[in-house]
């Protein structure tokens, strides 16, 4: 099963390679990885998406926590959470498809960020399923290039009663 794990870690040189080395060394898979600084410049947040049965996911979270520079590990899949990914797509936009592309982008609330005579570059943000949907629709029109950020995720706030 797919799990999204959110990790807080010390923002120090080499920390990312400790995390990726752990995954490769122990045969865990990484489907997506995203890391950036938090409000505290000494702390980074890392979101990793991995697949495995319960035992594997338990080992992943424990092994991550065992790294000296890791502050907190949360498997947010177990909770209510929001996930987002951004994708930049350069798509064929010849005369006969330009309008169609713009319609699709509009439906998915995307933005055109670069225009040329034969293509558009568009920016789309959303959950993994939305990104998949938009790619599926644009693919027949002709995707020339695609760049994805990887998934970032955040737990939803506890509901007050």
């Amino acid at each position: 099963m797919k799990h999204t794990i959110s990790v807080l870690l010390q923002n120090k040189p080499g920390v990312l390679s400790r995390v990726t080395g752990l995954f490769s060394g122990r045969g865990f898979n990484i489907e997506s990885l995203c890391v950036a600084q938090t409000l505290d410049p000494d702390v980074s947040n890392l979101t990793v998406v991995s697949r495995g049965d319960d035992n594997v996911i338990e080992q992943i979270t424990k092994q991550l926590h065992k790294l000296i520079d890791v502050i907190k590990v949360v498997d947010i899949t177990e909770k209510e959470y929001v996930e987002r990914e951004m994708v930049l797509i350069r798509i064929n936009a010849e005369a006969h498809t330009r309008a169609e592309v713009l319609r699709v982008i509009d439906i998915f609330r995307g933005k055109v960020v670069d225009v040329s005579a034969k293509s558009y570059a568009v920016e789309i943000t959303g959950s993994a399923s939305k990104i998949k949907a938009v790619i599926d629709i644009l693919r027949p029109i002709g995707i020339k290039e695609i760049v994805r950020t990887g998934i970032i995720a955040m737990s939803r706030a506890a509901k007050t009663k």
Binding site: Q59, H65, K66
Partner: peptide, 10 residues
């Protein structure tokens, strides 16, 4: 070491 627990045998 928590990682040793239930690593190979539940």
């Amino acid at each position: 070491d928590p990682t040793s627990i239930s690593k190979n045998v539940k």
